[in-house]
Design a binder for these strands. Structure first.
Lengths: 191, 191, 191, 191
DNA sequence: TATGAATGAGGATTCATTCAT
DNA sequence: TATGAATGAATCCTCATTCAT
């Protein structure tokens, strides 16, 4: 892992522990095990870390999603596995997701959001397209748009749980079932 | 408009222009046309503004929603009008929504989120309950949870538009249709 | 004495003691008995102090010159008194003069030099003009130019002493005599 | 040109462009086209460059002076040629002269000033001595002191021009005539 | 209530200098 | 000799907060 990656990973860790506002650059470098000045060789400011962090987070998500979703499963199961994976990532990293969101939103890095999320959107879009061709979901589904909508919906549903009821695992289970049900109907799935 | 409101409105304006992080209290008081010290007569800190801002925003949203949704309309139409209203508010205030989100999320004001959004959730939950009782939507719908899910979905769908395609009104139209379609199926509406 | 003046005087004192380079803003504020931040209410940087310091120094010089030079004295004596005064000021403040020079020279404040020195130049120019009219100095003297030349010459002669022989008062005496002699001839004075 | 000279010349160039204070060693090495660490193989610090720069400047001056002043000319003409040469050098390098002055003055390198200027002072002192022996200038002239005084006077007169009227060549001409006149009288030259 | 100059702790940032390669 | 990434002490500067008026 090179220095830049070390900084990003240290930042994720520290941000999770104490939030962005309260995190000093000195905390990040301490966690990364590098000198104060070294930070500035790679990033001009704290906020400029955000796109790099977002990228890592989406990669993590993709990794978990791809590990969770079995190629051989039916689309219906795949969808459940996707929801499961997103709830999982949100559970593990919900502080970070809020941070990324605000970090990207509050800066000029907005445009990078699309780029960063692109592989995730694309992956789901392809799965939807297949399902549509197999007649498993209603033909009126527009794969690209629906992919974004589903990811948005599931993330927001998952965040709601950990936002308010951060301890209650039960709530997560119930919410997840509800989301699956909601999606199945929304997509017009039969069986 | 009293001083407290002046501060809140000045803050919304300045936050929209330069983001939360880059905004100093001195910027806010300058915009509000008051003295530095006066701020502290009304708010103990910059972040304590957030719930007040969120409240104003949700009020704006509720006002628009209630103005848009006709009591006499069918549930199906009501739902469309709700989507329309949320897209509208998001269009006008999408920067602020990100700010509120990050502002509430990054502080200890998290708990207030629920309070602030409560009237909106409740309003939709009641509409869903009615529709369920009238047999217009599937009986398996859990009104409270679904209300949150719908608002989350519609907001995230609307934000996606204004995040990337902030100028393209057409995109908004198409996305809106898609959302309506998605919701109708998800709720299991017949007719 | 207002805060701005307090800062300028503290800066002069500290610069004399330890030089510009080695002086931290924190040293200046400590000497001025004010808080760190207060400095920045009045000056944006250390170098921006220079014109203000130069002004004070020229005022000091003018004060000493005017106290030393008797209105009733002959021009010849006035000139000697002027030389005496400049050697005096240079003796007391030679560190500062180098600082002012480099401080003004190394920044964009060059134009202010003229303004700051103007009253001194003018005072001598008027004396020269009088002497010319009285036939005490040669008629070919151009009062304005010669005033600057004399001040430049005497300052540089005085600095040379304190630059190299900073302790040797004798050297100063001899150099002063030499300068007076030089000037008397240069001006074509017959007593 | 060896590395040491490359560094000195790069430093002169960068100092002229942005002043001493604002110049980082990294700027100098960039201009010199060498690596950061290489600087320290030749100079222990930024300020230790100053004597080397001063030396180069005095060499330049001496070269111009020696090229301008004809051995065969009368002392009167030699003096004019000297003034001409100093005005020339000041015109070309007045920023640097201020820098050297402040650079040498603000450090512990003060003693080196004498060394660096020595050949120039000595050259003029010898010319004055000759003129004195030939009875061309008044016998009361002290060659060594007067040499320093003259160089100080001419440099300060020249700087005044380029400090304020950096574009006005006419001013330089007039000032030069005045200086020559002033010197001729000061030295008590007949013929 | 309202003011705004003053505060000073906190943290960002710089940059001369080092040293393993 | 030459390199340039890494260092971290030194210092700048900000800005939330206070308080005398």
């Amino acid at each position: 892992m090179n220095k830049k990656e070390m900084i990003v990973h240290a930042a994720i860790q520290v941000f999770r522990e104490q939030g962005i506002e309260k995190t000093k650059i000195s905390d990040i470098v301490k966690a990364a095990g590098i000198a104060q000045g070294t930070f500035y060789l790679y990033f001009p400011s704290k906020l400029s870390l955000m796109p790099a962090i977002a990228e890592v987070m989406v990669e993590k998500t993709m990794t978990i999603v791809q590990a969770s979703v079995q190629e051989s499963a039916t689309f219906s199961v795949k969808l459940e596995q996707l929801v499961e994976a997103i709830f999982q990532v949100t559970h593990d990293y919900h502080e970070i997701q809020a941070l990324i969101y605000s970090g990207l939103a509050s800066t000029e890095h907005l445009k990078e959001w699309e780029t960063v999320y692109a592989p995730f959107y694309q992956w789901l879009s392809e799965r939807l397209q297949e399902a549509k061709e197999e007649g498993i979901i209603r033909p009126s589904i527009h794969a690209d748009r629906t992919a974004k909508m589903i990811i948005g919906l599931v993330e927001s549903a998952a965040e709601q749980i950990y936002l308010y009821d951060s301890e209650q695992e039960d709530q997560a289970r119930i919410q997840q079932v509800e989301v699956n049900d909601f999606l199945r109907h929304a997509l017009g799935m039969h069986e």
